[in-house]
Simulated assay, not measured.
Amino acid sequence: MSALNYRETGATRHVPLPPGYHHLRHRTRIGQGRDVFEAAGAAVTTWRMHRQSGARVDTRSPRVETGTHVTLSLGLGPLRFYAPCEVVWTAYGTELIGFAYGTRAGHPECGEESFLVELAPDGTVWFDVTAFSRPGCWYTRLAGLLVPVLQRAYARHLGNTLRRMTHHRG
């Protein structure tokens, strides 16, 4: 079992995010209504959104719970990046569903990322990705400013994936 490789565990729940990291905030409108909210929340908390986005998800837990270990991987063939993480907090509420995972030893970054589905008072369903990270290995240090660009593109891709998964509901 690998330990988390950063100190500010749970900090994606708070504003401001911790200093000394690259910060990411991305918001996507998913749709409208409780049915869309519940479908999107289920997709996020059962790893379906990540799988549908093209990531491989290796975990023993079918549902997100605090303490769950998961390794995500992206890439093609032998060129694959592995990202070991641990779920550090969850939200299973009537207007907010989601979770955050933190990076473990062996992850190319150090930090935390949250994935939240929100049902706004007007019925709009939003998907928010919030993260703080910094390079955790030689190749992410070498990639420099390209990493935040790729992270933002992936957050946008997750939002679009989730919207497609729930579009028939509202």
Rank of each mutant, 00 (worst) to 15 (best):
A39G: 05
S73N: 04
D58C: 13
L79K: 07
T94S: 12
G75F: 02
G41R: 10
T46F: 06
W89S: 07
G93R: 08
P78R: 11
G77Q: 10
F99R: 01
D58E: 15
G54A: 02
A55T: 03
V64G: 04
H107I: 01
P84D: 07
E86Y: 02
V117I: 12
D58A: 15
T103M: 06
V117Q: 08
G77R: 11
E95K: 00
P78G: 05
L76R: 14
H50N: 05
E118N: 01
G93Q: 06
S73P: 12
E95T: 10
E109D: 08
A105R: 13
T90C: 08
E118F: 03
L116C: 14
H69N: 06
T68W: 08
A105H: 12
Q52F: 11
S114F: 05
V87P: 03
F99A: 02
T90G: 00
L119R: 04
R104H: 00
L119E: 01
L74P: 00
A40E: 00
S53E: 02
H107K: 13
D58R: 14
G98L: 09
A43T: 09
L119C: 02
V44T: 14
C110N: 13
P78H: 05
V44H: 12
G67R: 14
T46L: 03
E113M: 12
A40N: 05
R48C: 00
E95H: 01
A100V: 09
V70Y: 05
P84W: 10
E86H: 00
P84G: 03
G106C: 10
R63H: 15
E118K: 02
C110E: 14
E112N: 09
V57N: 06
R56L: 10
E95M: 00
M49E: 08
Y92T: 10
G54P: 00
W47Q: 11
V57A: 01
T103P: 05
A39W: 05
R63C: 04
M49Q: 11
P62L: 14
Y82G: 02
Y82C: 05
R51I: 09
G106H: 03
L74F: 14
L74T: 03
Y101E: 04
G102S: 10
T94R: 11
V88Q: 07
T68F: 04
P84C: 10
T66C: 05
S73Q: 12
R80P: 00
P78M: 04
L76H: 06
G75M: 02
R104S: 00
